[in-house]
Design a protein around this nucleic acid. Structure first.
Lengths: 147, 147
DNA sequence: TTTCTTGCAAACGATTTGCACTTTG
DNA sequence: CAAAGTGCAAATCGTTTGCAAGAAA
């Protein structure tokens, strides 16, 4: 069984468990949105998800997408990010996030750093319970710095 | 001389130098906005700055505030952040930023960590030139976790 | 006097909201 | 069937933009 399918079914189970625990309904829209989010996997925004679903003939209103993405964030399945622009971006939750953000062209490069994440999430924050972290390094990318 | 005044004049000089270098004009609005930004110091948003200026009888249009804050970011005097909400927040640039963000009530607590910042800014990022960093830890604050 | 800035109001665009209709439990 | 969820369109609201009037160089 391919790893992505394994992950994907795990996440679906995670959603089912979450919906059950909160007495919320298991609608097809919610699972369709989760599947597409997993498929897009890297940072995606609401419109990309909307278009991807539309392309394969599956129609869901934007309002539902907004609702569901918020739900998936609460379930800890997705993380929501706001970088330079005012456009929310989502990604499947993984512990480690280190983003190199060019403040000129807005390009975002992602770097994995499990060690940093571990150290950020396992400190004592005096009552605050950490769930996930996101570190952003702002600067100039090679292209923008070189001109 | 109090430390804040010292810092404040340094930042004003920094702005003057920046405007000179870029052949931009030294308008009273730009200095008024910088002064108020320094006075607010912690995270503030456009409206807080606007109201603070308005309260003391100094009128500047929002458009000018937006323009100037962007300028101050380019000058490296302020940093712009987007946390949970879609509202840009600014703060006087300091190397270290570690934010504890409650994903329920949106409260932001700031923690200083010069060591973390140093380690983030002095790595080799393969062509990318880091300028400043911001780390965000998302989770639940003591109040929201305890209910 | 030339060009940059400002202010105002209109435009924009991502997100939210209200409400009638549909579906899940 | 009752309550929750969806779709649609209108409303919201932070931010951007166009342009005429004002100020810096």
């Amino acid at each position: 069984m391919p790893e992505t399918e394994y992950e994907s079914s795990t996440l679906r189970d995670q959603l089912t468990e979450f919906l059950h625990r909160r007495h919320l309904r298991k609608t097809p829209e919610r699972y369709a949105i989760l599947s597409k989010a997993i498929e897009l996997s890297a940072h995606f925004d609401v419109d990309q998800l909307y278009n991807a679903l539309e392309t394969e003939g599956y129609h869901v209103s934007r309002a539902t997408i907004y609702n569901t993405l918020e739900l998936l964030c609460e379930a800890g399945i997705l993380n929501r990010h706001l970088f330079a622009t005012n456009l929310a971006r989502y990604e499947v939750a993984r512990g480690s996030h280190l983003h190199l953000i060019c403040r000129k062209c807005g390009k975002i490069k992602e770097i994995d750093d499990p060690l940093l994440t571990q150290s950020l999430l396992h400190r004592d924050y005096d009552g605050f319970s950490p769930e996930y972290s996101s570190s952003s390094i702002y600067g100039l990318c090679a292209d923008c710095a070189g001109q």
